[in-house]
Design a protein around this nucleic acid. Structure first.
Length: 143
DNA sequence: GCCAACGTTGGC
DNA sequence: GCCAACGTTGGC
């Protein structure tokens, strides 16, 4: 199963709102970047992702699950981009800040560190485990 | 609020 | 098809 990271400005769409959207989840639209699109096209229902708050928080705050694979984004008038549906799984016990991630040598290769502007990013299994560890979710880290 | 990094656009 | 100019994002 693949792992991802979804990035959002909490002022636009926060994890709190994602939680309130409940089991049915919501579509993750507004992506207008081809690399991010490529990642979304690779997603499958059941894939898990981190929910990252940019700007105010600068921290990974929760876990989401992809519940519907890539389909066209009707809000994109060019017709080039699409979106996936995600639902909140749970908030992390402790959120993991960007500063923590940067301070962790084993996470030096995370896309978040190297290409922070990319809004949808792949996360390796190892990175997932380490972030879960930092979040105090070590028991959940096992695959 | 500033600025670096990156993507996109448009002139040639 | 190249590349400079411009706009946007996001960390600080």
């Amino acid at each position: 199963m693949a792992r991802w990271l979804f990035k959002s400005e909490p002022a636009t769409w926060s994890f709190q709102q994602q939680l309130e959207a409940g089991e049915k989840g919501t579509f993750w639209n507004g992506v207008r970047n081809h690399l991010a699109k490529k990642h979304m096209m690779a997603m499958k229902a059941g894939d898990l992702g981190f929910f990252y708050h940019s700007n105010e928080d600068k921290a990974i705050i929760g876990v989401v699950e992809v519940i519907k694979p890539y389909y066209p984004d009707h809000t994109d008038e060019t017709g080039k981009f699409g979106m996936v549906d995600v639902r909140a799984v749970k908030p992390l016990k402790e959120k993991v800040s960007l500063a923590q991630i940067k301070a962790e040598p084993r996470l030096a290769n995370m896309v978040l560190v190297n290409n922070s502007r990319l809004s949808v990013q792949p996360v390796t299994g190892e990175e997932w485990r380490i972030v879960m560890e930092l979040a105090g979710e070590a028991d959940r880290a096992e695959k």
